[in-house]
Design a protein around this nucleic acid. Sequence first.
DNA 1: CTATAATCGAGACGGTACGTCCGGTCTTGTA
DNA 2: TACAAGACCGGACGTACCGTCTCGATTATAG
Lengths: 198, 198, 198, 198
Amino acid sequence: MARPRNAATDLAILDATRAELVEKGWSKLTMAAVAERAGVAKTTLYRRWPGRSEMVVDAVAVLFDELELPDRGSLQSDIEGVVLSFASLMSRPEAKTALMAVVAESTHSPQLRDRIRTAVVDRQKRLVRQGRLRAQERGELPADRPDSAEDEQLIDLTFDVVAGAVVHRVLVSDEPVDEQWAAAFALLLVGGITAVSG
Amino acid sequence: MARPRNAATDLAILDATRAELVEKGWSKLTMAAVAERAGVAKTTLYRRWPGRSEMVVDAVAVLFDELELPDRGSLQSDIEGVVLSFASLMSRPEAKTALMAVVAESTHSPQLRDRIRTAVVDRQKRLVRQGRLRAQERGELPADRPDSAEDEQLIDLTFDVVAGAVVHRVLVSDEPVDEQWAAAFALLLVGGITAVSG
Amino acid sequence: MARPRNAATDLAILDATRAELVEKGWSKLTMAAVAERAGVAKTTLYRRWPGRSEMVVDAVAVLFDELELPDRGSLQSDIEGVVLSFASLMSRPEAKTALMAVVAESTHSPQLRDRIRTAVVDRQKRLVRQGRLRAQERGELPADRPDSAEDEQLIDLTFDVVAGAVVHRVLVSDEPVDEQWAAAFALLLVGGITAVSG
Amino acid sequence: MARPRNAATDLAILDATRAELVEKGWSKLTMAAVAERAGVAKTTLYRRWPGRSEMVVDAVAVLFDELELPDRGSLQSDIEGVVLSFASLMSRPEAKTALMAVVAESTHSPQLRDRIRTAVVDRQKRLVRQGRLRAQERGELPADRPDSAEDEQLIDLTFDVVAGAVVHRVLVSDEPVDEQWAAAFALLLVGGITAVSG
DNA sequence: CTATAATCGAGACGGTACGTCCGGTCTTGTA
DNA sequence: TACAAGACCGGACGTACCGTCTCGATTATAG
């Protein structure tokens, strides 16, 4: 009760973390370097996060909140838009290197898995819901059936398909996501959703 | 003229690497432990691979060669089959932890990116081609147009969608890929491909 | 402001160094073994000394401070005494193996040469000065001429002759320094000094 | 029986050893480097010497055979001469670094100690005997008493004093042996020997 | 004039230690 | 109490040599 933590310090640390990620990448990211860059002692880092991975998850999570779903007039266009902006996010070095790394770490740590899910995954499903709702308003998709588990599953499925395809294209196949690819993907997805929902 | 390298040593090392991956996971995998388990000196590892990542790529790559595409009678069923067997592969601890980790590392190393592409990605596209061919023989899909770049792109797209969705579901969303999910996914994908190709 | 170095650690390390020298000898002395024996991390060694040789010089230097020159009543006897006690020092395994080794190393390192000179050589010249002074008080030797470079050179010469002869006898010729040898040597040296100074 | 060893190879190896000693010093001298420099395989080295130390002793021993004792007309002058030529030998980098190093090693190896004694020490005592004989012929010293252990001991003592003083001056005290020092030393030694033998 | 057997070059190999780096904890003094 | 500074332990890193080994290829002698 004597002295409260300095809130600005958190931001400085997360900024420093992202900067180091850009310059060095995940495996060369050291706590000491982040601390020095943030003008902070190593102790302070460990007082706030249990380890490197958790800190990086938090540092990267905010990037995902920049994603939006502007109304481009059709489901097809909306998908194209979100694919392109997600791809551009995944092309930023601090995002691509960190995301895969923490996912890798998470395979041996349930705590980390939870942190990723709450900080990244769940927060972005909103985009799928929003796009679906908008398409229903436009009459492109039928309205949700009340309490339908199938509808809920379709949302999850759509999320994994969109996010997975983009991540795989960019990071594993190592090919660019350009407008042409986004269009082809959106066409495929709309076709599939229509077939399933129709 | 000089003493040749022992070919069996390579196999012993890669076996040891996979075993250590299962027990310790990527971040606790040490060269010394792999060497000891393989009954080999650390030097020998470094004589054959430039680093941990490259060695792990080679160790994991062979797992992907186990994937097959048995003829289950329809495109929909074929997709369900490959999704399930791929998901079962991605659930093996040595595959999931290693794959994400090397992809993360690869974001800062073109050499590693190439190695992943040739050792893993390119080798598995055969499954997509094979499934497509079979569907065409069954009359489920129209035949390829000669020298069509579009057909080629559709193959790549399909590959990223299938592999990406499964990987994302298993590793990021952290949800199981069961028969129900495989069926829903296959339905969506067949719908999309039909719409696009029709 | 920051945490200060633990002074007791220095002593523990030097003790461990001497113990390892006794058991293993110079060429089998490893930093890791010293660290473990001292209950200290290897890092701590390197934080305090640039390398093995420097550490060993410091570890051995204190042994030389044990040397004394008890008044045995005559120059001849004083020399016999110091020769015997120096020889007994040079027979201790930690001294003999270490001293020659660091001298060997020093031939390629001016820094090390300086360290040896200040830590060992200069500190022991006091014995020669003391013995000379005592002999002068007894009237065995004429008093120093003021500001005489010759007197100073004679001190250095005596030091090299005494120390050199003992070291060479023990380490190179590999013969024991017993009372008989000490007496013969002292006789020779007193004869020489008297001839020169007379 | 079948094929004899190439004798020229021995010389090439010892030459290479000395050259490496000059350039790198003892502690940076590697068997691989010597082998390459001699145009020879590492195996060949180990076929001829049990280890580095033994090889270096042989490489350096020949240097000592260059020492001679030209007749300069008096015991005093003869001593000055041998001191200067021995000092010039001890100033050569391959000799100084190697000699101390093998002596250090020898403290833990009787075999090595023997090799040093036969290859270096015993071979050089001839110089003392020769100088003594010459001084006796000149009438500077009384003739040997038959079967006198004392005379024998005086030879050994003289050897240790001369060699020890020079080595200590050059390597430990790190001061030059010039004509002035040689003269002062010779004066001291002649005084001592005369007093003892008188 | 072979054939036979040791020598030789090259370099892979199992080891051991190196000196460095980093993670995470701890101990100081200052604010 | 929070914090900066940095010492500290532990442990892995990638490198360098060691001394041994396995290879073919190359001789010099014995048959």
